[in-house]
């Protein structure tokens, strides 16, 4: 059926309203402080560690993101579980709050489509997350400059910038998930709980489970086990399963981007090492290429989650 007018008329208005709601909300302020404090702690640990190691490192600046010092995890590991928290914190009541405030039917009786409302809300969430992440990135880069005292090279800046973009995509995946559950569950508390539960499962339990499931499907070959090696088939399946989790994808992309010596993600085949000087850094383009499937998979899963939510929202009754 041909629809009248643009599906996105009113989109800008919705984005601006939601954005100003987010930016002035107490929830956002709390989340931001949480992230900043945690990031500072991780950064402090990293800088201490970097100062202790005197070895020459051409990518000293990138080490800021990946170095950890006990007991604190690295900045990147902090991000990989704080970003989902922020996205879920912003998105879990996107649609159900409109139902519960009984504003939905009033807003939808204005000359806009549901498309504009839903997409506007998603965009506003993503922009809010981007603002926080860019701020955080600037903070880290600035502090790194001040504290290490060695200006980063163009390559390092470029790599950390791509890392920023990927982190925003990663945030988008979780935001789309939170949005989906905010459509599915009328109660915001239920939506938050289910989304957080799923996040815990995907991030902490699934990687362990993936190994177990892979071993159950393809039992390890005793010949490899005897040598203390993983059976290639089992390892491959485990990796495929683990990659169903966006957290795994993100971790892999981050490794490729922030460690220029990464030649492959997952099991390395001999063909990939032919003619390569071990330990020699790759150019940025090559690193991005290595991580490209993972990046595309993240974008695709964000889109898929959004589309599922969109279809459900289109069919939903407006009354509470």
């Amino acid at each position: 059926m041909q629809r009248e007018g643009s599906a996105f008329s009113g989109l800008g208005v919705v984005v601006l309203k939601e954005l100003s709601d987010h930016l002035t909300s107490v929830r956002m302020r709390v989340l931001e402080w949480l992230v900043v404090l945690v990031a500072l702690a991780a950064l402090y640990g990293a800088i201490q560690q970097i100062k202790d190691t005197t070895a020459e490192d051409p990518f000293l600046f990138l080490r800021l993101f990946t170095t950890s010092r006990d007991p604190l995890p690295s900045f990147v590991s902090f991000l990989s579980f704080l970003v989902p928290l922020m996205a879920i914190g912003l998105g879990f009541d996107t649609v159900n709050s409109e139902h519960n405030r009984r504003t939905l039917s009033r807003i939808l009786s204005q000359p806009i489509y549901r498309d504009a409302l839903l997409f506007g809300k998603f965009l506003a969430g993503l922009i809010t997350l981007s603002i926080s992440l860019v701020t955080l990135w600037l903070l880290v880069v600035g502090l790194g400059l001040l504290l290490i005292g060695i200006p980063p090279g163009a390559e390092e800046i470029a790599r950390s910038f791509v890392f920023l973009l990927v982190t925003i995509i990663y945030a988008g995946v979780w935001l789309a998930l939170a949005l989906l559950f905010s459509i599915l569950f009328r109660s915001a508390a239920t939506a938050a709980l289910v989304t957080l539960g799923l996040w815990l499962f995907i991030t902490f339990i699934w990687p362990v489970l993936a190994g177990a499931v892979a071993q159950a499907i393809i039992p390890p070959d005793p010949r490899y086990t005897a040598l203390g090696l993983q059976t290639p088939g089992t390892a491959e399946l485990e990796q495929i399963l683990a990659r169903l989790s966006p957290s795994t994808l993100y971790a892999e992309v981050v490794v490729a981007l922030l460690d220029p010596t990464t030649r492959a993600l997952g099991p390395i085949y001999l063909s990939q090492l032919q003619g390569a000087v071990l330990g020699a850094p790759l150019p940025l383009g090559a690193s991005v290429l290595i991580a490209w499937p993972q990046i595309v998979a993240m974008i695709a899963s964000a889109l898929l989650l959004f589309v599922v939510g969109y279809v459900i929202f289109q069919r939903q009754e407006v009354r509470a």
Binding site: E4, G5, R106
Partner: peptide, 20 residues
């Protein structure tokens, strides 16, 4: 088929109207 034309010209107050 033409929801925007209708909604532009019609005002609606739902039962238990809600605001932000």
């Amino acid at each position: 088929r033409e929801p925007l034309s209708v909604k532009r010209r019609v005002g609606y107050m739902p039962d238990t109207v809600g605001f932000y």
